[in-house]
Write a protein that binds this DNA or RNA. Sequence first.
DNA 1: TAATGTGAAGCCTTTCACAGCA
DNA 2: TGCTGTGAAAGGCTTCACATTA
Lengths: 216, 216
Amino acid sequence: MKYRKIPDEAVRRLPFYLRGLLTVWEQGRKSMSSRDLAGLLGFSHWQVRKDFSYFGSFGTPGKGYDTEKLIRQIRTILKLNVVRKAALVGVGNLGLAVLKYPGFRAYGFQIAAAFDNDRRKIGRKIGDITVEDVSRLRTLKKRGIDFGIITVPCEAAQRTFDALARAGVKGVLSFSPCQRTGLERAKVITIDIAMDLVRLPYYTPANRQKPKSGDQ
Amino acid sequence: MKYRKIPDEAVRRLPFYLRGLLTVWEQGRKSMSSRDLAGLLGFSHWQVRKDFSYFGSFGTPGKGYDTEKLIRQIRTILKLNVVRKAALVGVGNLGLAVLKYPGFRAYGFQIAAAFDNDRRKIGRKIGDITVEDVSRLRTLKKRGIDFGIITVPCEAAQRTFDALARAGVKGVLSFSPCQRTGLERAKVITIDIAMDLVRLPYYTPANRQKPKSGDQ
DNA sequence: TAATGTGAAGCCTTTCACAGCA
DNA sequence: TGCTGTGAAAGGCTTCACATTA
């Protein structure tokens, strides 16, 4: 493997490979070819191999990939080999949905704390998490929480973002289109439900381009 | 303007332009240059102009764009010039969050119905929508509902997707990574919260590439 | 003069073809 | 033989420079 700039798109696909591998690994499958993995996820087999090749050589020619080993390797690349902790801010419907989402653990991610500024919500228990006052966000660093999830209404987004920035988080997943950063030290990924919904009609028959089903 | 294949990425940005324009329009601003719009959204001004150029020539050299006219034009491109109706399936926390999300209306989108298979939820009113049994999904077409939103748990995703397909929807926004299509006639956009959260650690200082804040 | 619209260059990503290894 | 890993070709998107227009 030679050094080369790693495409952002390849990084974006790694969690999908991880998901596919975890699924077949749970079914007891010991090894897997790039074809199998591609088929499972709807990618092409050369795409799979190319993506891995950016990070190293993980497979055995003629045989394929060792499921468990590849899982470990992708975990290492994504820095998920130690459990990562995230704090969620905004315990509304969306916040609750994320808190109760069962899927993070398998990836080595743990939502370790939840915050709100509503007196009625503070103290409430969701699973084994107790909702805290947002003022306690400053304790994140010392609790080993490096990531934030923003599920607050629009008005509160910027101030939440600033608070997370001050708390020293390294990355933020935001469901709000209403923050305009201000902090360049953390990676911010924004999910904007409205923006995605709203472009569906464009792909309606008359002028649709390629309705490739497995789009992001 | 000459014909050229329209980049999917350009289409993906159109709703953002629309959002920016709606904001300044509400503030009473009559016109706007590509520089202003770019600054507002964190894009580059040539990107803005290039994106519009795929669809036509909407501006006035030396002056800029007429806010209201451009809003109408983007709406037309995105086929949002008539109100589009969507049905939501799965009235859990996530479903409720989407149902109560106030932002769709401004884009010409309306969530017009909600479905669940839980007896206790059927009949419940959320805003002016009454939750219906999933068996009634078949009525979508005749009610003029062309889009579906899937907010059901993983196990139910594929069957929900199939039901929406049978109901003849043209597009689906899915929050579930667990459906494997089967219908090629509808555009499917999938939002996978876990996949996005899980790649945050990768961008942590040691090997981060470019922590451009305004990433998707 | 000030801003648009666009060909062309440059860069990034995907696809392909195949050498090489187990 | 079967599958990996990768250079090279092809394709797609962004950036740039500038001719053009009000």
